[in-house]
Write a protein that binds this DNA or RNA. Structure first.
Lengths: 342, 342
DNA sequence: GTGTGCGATTAAACCGGTTTAAACACTCAG
DNA sequence: CTGAGTGTTTAAACCGGTTTAATCGCACAC
């Protein structure tokens, strides 16, 4: 009778061999006669047997799963274009390998370390993605202490035992600045993300150095937080300046789109009175009015690459090399225009 | 010496009892003397012992995890405001209970059923969330066949063995229509989502019946796909109509925001020439220009409720009752205005 | 004819918990 | 003094795989 799922023992009796032989055949271990292997595989097939992940997990001490801890306010997370695509990219690598992705969302106020601790102590995952990397990120030491393999998204500033998968934000940022300069803008401001994040500072420093290369200084730098509300506030402050910018480069699209709204609210027209550029090329960038000039990264590829790198670093013995992804590309739309002489 | 993590055997020898006793003490089983329980718990504490999830999973045949399969194109998923907040809500329930969330992203073209099959056959999860519920959703039969508990997000039209957690879209939709009517609009169109989804048809039918209650008919219904690109296209078609609408209700914010862009592109001003309303109250809705009138749901609460319901249905013996969430609320902003007489 | 070597196979231990049935200690009634 | 009854505790089986050490069969050399 069908007494639940078939086990390895069922396959063994059916094929007339021992449990161990079935295990060998399944895992392609040498030492079995080809005929026996075929017979076992056939028996397994007929029974529709698939090895139990739980049993395998216990005996080989692996979870066959990777973990992602997202430290983000739910409301803010909702409109983050990065993670969903990143996760899809991770999945594209994990699914064919029979691995799973375990997610953990932590609200910024809570104990972020607890998230990683739980993942590690429960043995839920074999490794984790370290996203939203910060300067002197305390999570690196934490993971070392927990003995949990990891891959960092972007390169930490201190030496790290983990491989890094990097997407250089500088070329895209520089392209934006050069684009604005070509349009005649000289008074350019930047609305930055929280400087604790390495990608936020990367964009900021690339911005200032690109301006410096043209012998210019930023008219203003507004510290913000990557949210639409933050973008609105920062924009208001910039427009209230005695000498307001003629162009603003935002560290992400959300702030940029909110910035366009704030500019309109202030009676300005984009791009006639103010040029605006963002970063991410999120879905809406193309469809808002005016179409947003921005920088297109590839979070899907980011996720896929990070997953393969992490798996290598878990399975492989030797050290895994860092990976550099192709840089993000400038996408010019209608939110940036020639500076009109006044 | 520290030979890896302590096991239940270590705790047992330390407390001077058997493995079984430790297990009893941990799980609060009756039959142990109080003193013994205290001694065991103390020993466990000193050793910093936490029971291995893997071992527990194997012996009790539970995964202590729930699954979510998202069938969505990565590019589209990126700007979906629902899932991130929903997931955060799920986590808020799972984390304190020591449960985990296993995610699976399936590209629409791929075999969606395979996603659920893998989750079930690998024994990764104890139950799944059935999101983006469709009419005559084939996944219900699939899950029955797989013997995997589930909770449906929204109520299926055919009888289902699974509890449903529902968020009624009709009150919010009706509120939008009444709001537009009060503003004097009579020529109102709807840009709908794919009618395979129950929430898409719910919004559409509520829209038409609310109009019918006022003795009106929709000036047009445009079938679309919840994407910004789709919203743009639908809007263009509506504005090209011989008798174009004076107000458009979109089935989600993304299409609405794209619709505002398309209207501007066509030389119209929102809300002067065209009123626009969306659905979701995504983060950007408040900050685009003009601020988007929309309907605010609470995906975080949705996730939290769905998780508790699913856990109940897994643990509990009896049937679990369906849950009805408080309906979404109309949020009036500046994208809707009094119809100007021409 | 015996020993050696090798490929194929298996029995049994192991991973770290849970659970069942049996054993144990102790009290109290007959 | 015996036996039943009660409250504690434990030994051992079990979950379903992997892995190691031992065994088996057989050809071959000496």
């Amino acid at each position: 009778m069908s007494k639940g799922r078939p086990t390895i023992a069922d396959v063994a009796t059916r094929a007339g061999v021992s449990k161990g032989a079935v295990s060998f055949a399944l895992n392609g271990r040498p030492g079995l006669a080809q005929g026996t292997v075929d017979r076992i595989l056939a028996a397994a097939d007929e029974l529709g047997w698939r090895p139990s992940n739980r049993a395998r997990s216990l005996s080989v001490s692996k979870a066959f799963a990777l973990g992602l801890v997202i430290t983000r306010d739910p409301a803010v997370l909702s409109s983050d274009p990065f993670f969903p695509a990143f996760i899809a990219g991770v999945e594209s690598v994990l699914a064919p390998r029979g691995q799973a992705l375990v997610l953990q969302v932590v609200t910024p106020g809570e104990d972020e370390a607890a998230g990683y601790r739980r993942l590690a102590q429960d043995g839920r995952v074999d490794g984790v993605f370290l996203s939203d990397l910060r300067h002197d990120d305390p999570r690196i030491d934490l993971l070392v202490e927990l003995g949990l393999p990891a891959v960092t998204l972007n390169r930490p500033d201190t030496a790290s035992p983990f491989p890094a998968v990097c997407l250089d934000d500088r070329p895209g940022t520089i392209a934006v600045v050069e684009h604005l300069l070509q349009l005649g803008h000289r008074k350019i401001a930047h609305v930055a993300g929280p400087q604790a994040f390495v990608h936020a500072t990367a964009r900021l420093t690339a911005f200032t150095s690109a301006l410096a290369a043209a012998g210019l200084e930023p008219v203003a730098i507004e510290a913000s937080d990557f949210t639409a509300a933050g973008g609105t506030e920062a924009t208001k402050r910039l427009l209230a300046l005695p000498e307001p910018p003629t162009a603003i480069f935002y560290a992400n699209d959300r702030m940029a789109i909110a910035g366009i709204g704030a500019a309109h609210q202030a009676g300005l027209t984009v791009p006639d009175d103010l040029s605006v550029a963002g970063f991410d090329d999120s879905e809406l960038a193309e469809f808002v009015h005016p179409g947003l000039t921005t920088v297109r990264a590839d979070p899907f590829a980011f996720g896929a690459t990070a997953a393969t790198t992490l798996i290598q670093s878990i399975d492989g013995d030797g050290d895994v090399a860092d990976v550099e992804l192709p840089p993000a590309q400038l996408v010019v739309r209608n939110s940036t225009a020639l500076l009109e002489e006044q």
